Each structure stands twice: as C-alpha cells, then as structure tokens.
Computed example of a mutant assay.
Amino acid sequence: MAGTARDEQYTAYVAARLPWLQRVAYLLCQDWDRADDLVQAALTRLYVKWHRAGSVENVDGYARTVLVRVFLAEQRTGWWRRVSPVREPPEPSPYLADRDSDLDLRAALRELAPRQRAAVVLRFYCDLSIEQTAEVLNCSTGTVKSQTSRGLAALRQALLPTMSLEEGTA
C-alpha cells in the first residue's frame, strides 16, 4: 500500500512540474530533444530517490538539483557531442513573443561553457540565490560568482553587436 501512495505522489508531482523541468533542461542544453532526454534521466533518478525527495521541504529544488547534475555529468562524458552529428538551430521557443531577441539570447547562451550556462540559468531563470546555486552545482559560492560573472560577460559580448544595431535604428 505504501508503494502505491508513493507512486501516486510521484506521478502527481511529475504531471504538475514536467513543463517547468523541460524548460529548465532546454535552457541548459538548447535542444528540445536533448532536454527531453535530460528530464527523463533526471526523473528516473528522482523516482529511485522519491522516498527522500518526497520528504524534503522543497521538492522542486531537489528535482532541479538532480536535473542540473545530470546535465553537467553528461557534459563531462562528451556523449552529447558524439550523438549529435549536425548542429541545427534551436526550434523557436513557444514561451517568448519576441522571436528575434529570443534567438539571439539562445544562441549566446548556447555558446557559454556548461557550468557558466548552468550558473546563469539557475541564478536568473530559476531565481536561486548564490548559496542555493552553489548547493545545486556542488561548488563554493565564489565559484558561482565567478561562473555567473564570466557567463554574463560572455552574454553581453555576444549580444552587444545586436544591441548596438537595434539602438542605432531606433
């Protein structure tokens, strides 16, 4: 009986939070198909640890941590480079209205190093504090600050020509 209740809780959680997990995964990897794979791997790990996750105060935080760590572990193996023979532009985001700015930002985000991308996504999309981000990335707060700073500098540099052109035409 306890197993059935556990499965029902897990299923209800996944049904409610799946779109959010997919968006976070997409921001990390910049590919909807790969995001689905990351979410699937994270949800599998989450199910195995549901007895622990179901009892924590912030289940979303636990799930997000699992997802980010799956992403970073995959980045270290290089598996994603071998499986993706052609780099195609990402599909337009169904969540943002300004498609041109969206494409510029996603292209710039895609060029960041994986840990920089994870730090920027966690800090500014997931709205985590420096300490929370450090916990998810399993690193020091100083590392979060430097990765975020470098990531933002790279984003500014990548978007600067676009921003200057737009300002010149206004």
Rank of each mutant, 00 (worst) to 15 (best):
A2T: 11
A12S: 10
A12H: 07
Y13F: 14
P19G: 12
W20Y: 15
L21W: 06
V24D: 01
A25P: 03
Y26C: 04
L28Q: 02
C29G: 02
Q30V: 10
D33Q: 13
D33P: 01
R34F: 03
A35L: 04
L38C: 03
L43C: 14
L46I: 10
Y47R: 15
V48N: 10
K49Y: 06
H51V: 14
S55G: 15
G61M: 08
A63T: 08
A63F: 02
R64S: 13
L67I: 06
F71R: 01
F71W: 06
A73Y: 10
E74P: 02
R76E: 12
R81H: 15
E88H: 13
P89T: 01
D98V: 03
D98Q: 08
D100Q: 14
S101Q: 13
L105D: 03
L105T: 08
A107H: 01
L112T: 00
A113N: 06
R115Y: 07
V120N: 00
F124S: 07
C126I: 05
D127L: 11
S129W: 00
I130Y: 09
T133P: 00
T133H: 02
A134F: 03
E135R: 10
C139Y: 06
S140G: 12
T141G: 15
V144R: 02
S146H: 09
S146F: 09
E166V: 13
E166T: 14
E167D: 15
T169K: 12
T169L: 13
